[in-house]
């Protein structure tokens, strides 16, 4: 899929208006280090929002707060109608089934084969009746990322790009409504990075998912972003689409596009 075609198609399938994640006045500090300060942002249904920021600017902290891995100091995070900091463990686990998370390091389980990696979340969440077709669901998820031949391989036998695809397949297998991508193309060569970006776009189209993408890879941002949030000094510094921000006169914003 060419970048241009991808951009046209992604705009066609972009946001339809309902808010799926609403972050209001979010603050998070680690000791004296104030990572997020009064950060507010809404993610619409079917939208890919990219959070752009320098390393250490709090991008990963933001999505870890959204998924409940970190507790914010202040503010509310409303995901699919539930305020995450107020959820108990059981409610949090149910919410997490609807929100996929792709780790920067892929976080594939080393001691398990690709099949076991994909079955792991499936066997722990789906009803017994649907578990009859676990094999079918695993193969479907692998076919979606074009790696059905790796089903019985160990993660250590796969290349970086393949591991990223398998991690994406594992994220998709529970059919989440929202996906949080943590630097999905970091550490990959430009060609593989582009393939992963196009795959993210295919996922958005096929499953009508909404996504927050943490990235500073501008090639990836250009392909996947419906909207870009620039995170500077822990605040939502600027919001706009790729072209708007690229043509911005603000120095701090412009430096990301140079």
């Amino acid at each position: 899929m060419s970048t241009q075609t991808a951009t046209v198609e992604k705009n066609a399938s972009a946001a339809n208006g309902d808010t799926v994640i609403s972050i209001q006045h979010l603050s998070k500090s680690f000791g004296e280090n104030h990572v997020l300060r009064d950060f507010s942002f809404d993610l619409k249904q079917g939208e890919n929002a990219v959070v752009l920021g320098k390393s250490g600017s709090g991008k990963s902290v933001l999505i870890k707060c959204i998924i409940g891995l970190l507790n914010p100091d202040k503010g509310s995070i409303n995901v699919l109608g539930q305020n995450v900091p107020e959820l108990n463990q059981e409610e949090l686990d149910r919410m997490r089934v609807k929100v996929g998370f792709l780790f920067q390091s892929n976080a594939l389980y080393d001691s398990m084969t690709v099949r076991e990696n994909l079955e792991f979340p499936l066997r722990r969440h789906w009803m017994k009746s649907t578990l009859d077709d676990v094999d079918g669901m695993v193969m479907e998820a692998l076919e979606n990322v074009g790696l059905s031949h790796t089903v019985d391989m160990m993660p250590a036998e796969l290349s970086g790009g393949m591991r990223k695809r398998i991690a994406l397949a594992r994220t998709l297998i529970l059919k989440p409504e929202i996906i949080l991508y943590d630097e999905p193309t970091t550490g990959l060569d430009p060609i593989t990075g582009k393939e992963i970006s196009n795959l993210m776009l295919d996922v958005q189209k096929k499953y009508n998912t909404s996504a927050i993408v943490i990235s500073h890879d501008m090639n990836c941002v250009k392909i996947v972003a419906n909207r870009i949030v620039v995170l500077i000094d822990g605040t939502c510094y600027a919001v706009g689409n790729y072209d708007e921000l690229k043509n911005s006169n603000d120095k701090k914003v412009k430096q990301f596009f140079e």
């Binding site: 891995l69 686990d93 997490r96 089934v97 920067q104 390091s105 976080a107 389980y109 080393d110 722990r124």
Partner: peptide
């Protein structure tokens, strides 16, 4: 084993998939 699972975010991955 658990230490390397922790630093490679595998424990976090289990948690975000809604597994204890």
């Amino acid at each position: 084993e658990l230490g390397s699972m922790k630093v490679t975010e595998q424990i976090d991955a289990m948690e975000v998939s809604g597994t204890n």
